[in-house]
Design a protein around this nucleic acid. Structure first.
Lengths: 330, 330
DNA sequence: TTGAAAGCGTTACCAA
DNA sequence: TTGGTAACGCTTTCAA
């Protein structure tokens, strides 16, 4: 920066102001800009953050970057935060709470303006770390009873219950559930819980549950899970899957066996992934607005940052919509 | 840090050394650690970077985070770089060179130890920026004739040619190609180029090309593209798609029309996505080791960082393997 | 509108 | 093994 200042014949402060877009005469601004371009000067963000006491980072932690649901959420966050001059520090927890804790600790070192987490289950140390740091927190994809700070999401339990009611309304009584074997995917567990609560409420058979495959359960797990379900309960009329991915795998297994979907067996998914709209038969699912969760979270973050210096109030919980999307498969 | 030092009864320097894992007596180390825990002290990364002159960031730019190919590459990078204490600064260029330029400029502000880019097409300004910065660069997913610095990937042109030969060996003469309409997906363009070169070399019809949909072409585009191809060249025997995603959409369209794959028409994909292995019929494809590209890129980065202080040599180009994977669809 | 000085929290370097 | 001092490159603050 000294080099730029020297070349432009001004002080460092003037260079700093020009870069920040603050008041400066047009002539000065131009000379400084010319010097910047000539030298290819790029300001050091670490020095800026240290000096001003505020970084431009927002930390985002998702369980898996390869799930389109979560990468859509990241896109939504990007769309809102980037225009504010904020940068995303993205981390992938791999569904592991310990890894989340390590990543939170690591990201805290960069003094992020806010931290966006997925879900509401965190280690005690993670919560303590966040509380102590004083950094605003948004929990996404769930509506925890006691959020750390802010939350943007929906009740996976209730969304799953709605799908059960949809299937029951279609006349199905013997309904199965296909989910992952691991308890780490809390949203998956909540959907299973919703299945169990609603089948009980409706007086339906609650036992037809197959849990198979590590989080995140992918389409590869759908087929063996379906096979297992059919071998244990051959008279099953409808199957609800923890996601469209597993539903797709399940439907493929049905096709291999010559079972018609939905004539012989109905199959429903969850999450409204692109595959469910394209495949044949198309998959009845629950749409959840993954991108919108990111957007809303971004808006909550911007509001919280504004409130910090403006003294305004912040929204604590934002409920995002979900809806059963009837298609061909159920 | 002063607080920790005071509480532990040592100097700031000792605290710094304990945190860096440098020489310190066991007793001191323990007292300092206790103070750190008690105060919940988290070191400021910006100050550390400023002082030491080196950050712990590696910047990674991919065209799209929601493509499993690229998120697999990011996983590969993470697996290698995280154990080295490096952190990924991930950016999504959305296939736009201008956006890439903006992101490169932004990431350069954080003084990354290395920058990993996707592909070999960049704006002149991007190249200039990178050259001036002196930061090591890895270009992934391609083998440019003149890499900026290092490169890890394979020739998409040659990989596509191999698929054409595979289809020709199966006896197909009238082969079509389904790709995206935009020129931004350079890997897609290279695959099309490979298709055209090899069909010409084999004396086959080169005109059966349908380009439809923005980058990245997804499964939703496969169906209309297939429909277009069939309406223009109804006697097509085999179709090669720019990715498994579009191949899947194309196959769905065939099923809707009652066309049997591969009996009536063969369909091949590219990239070995999970869907190709699960769906029915399973999709013949070209496997490309997306995760391995990330790993190798990570190793190249570690080597380059080591070479910087060790004086060793760095690998310039790393060729990653690809192979036609015969399945049911072609 | 511009400039000078102080200081942000850490690490490098040298001395004890 | 430990501590003091300077310095990293910028922004804040105050003064001109």
């Amino acid at each position: 920066m000294s080099d730029v200042a020297r070349l432009a014949g001004v002080s460092k402060m003037t260079v700093s102001r020009v870069m920040a877009g603050q008041s400066a005469s047009e002539a000065t601004r131009e000379r400084v800009q010319r010097a910047i371009d000539e030298l290819g000067y790029v300001a050091d963000a670490a020095a800026g953050a240290l000096s001003s006491g505020r970084s431009s980072f927002v930390a985002v932690l998702v369980p898996s970057l390869s799930s389109s649901n979560f990468s859509d959420t990241v896109s939504g966050l990007t769309a809102v935060l980037e225009p504010q001059g904020l940068e995303l520090l993205i981390g992938d927890t791999d569904y592991l709470p310990d890894r989340e804790e390590r990543l939170v600790r690591q990201m805290l070192r960069h003094q992020p303006r806010c931290i966006a987490l997925t879900g509401s289950r965190h280690t005690a140390a993670t919560r303590a770390l966040l509380q102590r740091s004083g950094v605003p927190v948004v929990e996404m994809w769930d509506l925890p009873a006691e959020p750390i700070d802010m939350a943007v999401g929906f009740s996976n339990v209730n969304a799953a219950r709605e799908m059960v009611r949809y299937l029951a309304d279609k006349g199905h009584r013997r309904i199965g559930f296909l989910g992952g074997a691991s308890d780490l995917d809390r949203r998956g567990i909540d959907r299973l819980k919703g299945f169990q609560l609603e089948t009980k409420a409706l007086g339906l058979d609650r036992d037809r549950v197959v849990r198979l495959g590590e989080s995140p359960i992918t389409m590869s797990h759908g087929a063996p899970a379906m096979a297992e379900l059919l071998s244990r309960w051959p008279d099953t009329q409808a199957v609800m899957c923890v996601s469209d991915m597993s539903a797709f795998g399940a439907i493929m297994e049905c096709q291999r066996r010559g079972l018609r979907v939905p004539a012989d067996i109905a199959v429903a998914g969850f999450g409204n992934f692109e595959i469910g709209a394209c495949c044949h038969p198309s998959i009845t699912t629950v749409s959840v607005d993954a991108y919108g969760i990111g957007q809303r979270a971004g808006e909550a973050i911007v509001a919280a940052l504004g409130a910090a210096d403006g003294g305004g109030r912040r929204t604590v919980k934002t409920r995002t919509p979900y809806a059963v999307v009837p298609r061909e498969s159920a």
